[in-house]
């Protein structure tokens, strides 16, 4: 008993840690993680730069003309870096990444004033999903202890998890459980926990039968993807101001925000589906 109790404590500790890291993410602290995540992000994540470019406003006009593909990919780390450095104010030049320094020495002054002007309000507005403007409902579901919420407008259904109905595909990522036939359509089913949870927590999920804990599949994005979960919980009604919305600084793009009152992470379904479709590296979900 005491062993399992200890395990429980450890687990909830790990989850608390993860949730607070989600919150930190949303709240745009997390400076200590800055280095790792930038290292990962600078060479992959094909579609991320587009989003951030839109959010961070300033580099767009200049960079889109002067920079090559490669530089565009580097843009995100650069702009987020500028973001973080803003509180200390005005001297991003020395630390801005090599690519930008080399290619466009002139536009540098430009980003700063605009960022400063917009830092409080603009980025948040831009990055929020449509449904977030007024009261909305969301369904809570549990993946290995982490509570996730999917807005009802983006929810297409919930079906039983039935391993018999899943066809495993060869040579796929570990979080991809296989194809499920749902009303004649083959839906890829994802083990959400193994996709989004950090490595430490994920290790506990590997056992003899890592899928034994699953009970339901949540269908999202016009039923295009199924998110396998441990259990489905209640539906809650949320006011926009109850949610800590993500900012432009947010690393996890699938995370629309967190709801402290329910200790849950709100999913941005479109971003989540885009990440899956773009075959973004798994780190894009977890970092």
């Amino acid at each position: 008993m005491s062993k399992s109790e200890k395990q429980l404590v450890d687990q909830s500790q790990a989850l608390d840690d993860f949730f607070s890291s989600l919150m930190r993410d949303v709240e745009a602290y997390a400076e200590e993680e800055q280095h790792d995540s930038q290292a990962i992000r600078s060479d992959d994540l094909p579609s991320a730069p587009a989003v951030v470019q839109a959010e961070s406003v300033s580099p767009k006009p200049v960079m889109s003309e002067t920079t090559s593909q490669q530089d565009v990919q580097l843009e995100e780390p650069v702009s987020t870096k500028i973001f973080e450095q803003l509180p200390p104010v005005v001297e991003p030049e020395p630390e801005v990444s090599v690519a930008e320094v080399e290619i466009q020495p002139e536009p540098e002054p430009e980003p700063e004033p605009k960022h400063e002007a917009g830092i409080e309000s603009a980025p948040e507005k831009v990055s929020r999903p449509d449904w977030s403007e007024s009261e909305f409902q969301a369904m809570l579901f549990n993946v290995a202890g982490l509570m996730l919420a999917v807005p009802l407008v983006d929810l297409n259904g919930v079906v039983e998890w039935d391993p018999e109905k899943i066809t495993e595909m060869p040579g796929h990522a570990e979080f991809y459980l296989g194809l499920m036939n749902h009303l004649g359509v083959n839906v890829p089913v994802i083990d959400t926990a193994r996709l989004v949870l950090p490595p430490k927590k994920r290790q506990e999920l590997t056992g003899d039968d890592p899928t034994a804990r699953l009970s339901r599949v949540v269908l999202i994005h016009d039923g295009q993807y199924g998110l396998a979960c441990d259990e489905v919980s209640e539906v809650i009604t949320l006011q926009p101001d109850e949610v800590r919305w993500r900012t432009a600084r947010t690393q996890r793009r699938w995370l629309a925000g967190t709801v402290v009152e329910h200790m849950c992470a709100l999913i941005d379904v479109n971003a989540f589906a885009d990440l899956l479709a773009s075959r973004a590296p798994v780190s894009a979900f977890r970092e």
């Binding site: 066809t167 595909m169 040579g171 990522a173 991809y176 194809l179 083959n186 890829p188 798994v282």
Partner: peptide, 28 residues
């Protein structure tokens, strides 16, 4: 014959040309 949706980054899944439903089971 339906196309198999690609999920994840594993390159080795390129060799899957499609899937076909055979009653309850799926033929890869």
């Amino acid at each position: 014959i339906e196309t198999a949706p690609n999920v994840g980054t594993d390159e080795s899944s390129k060799y899957i040309q499609g899937v076909s439903s055979q009653g309850e089971e799926l033929l890869i």
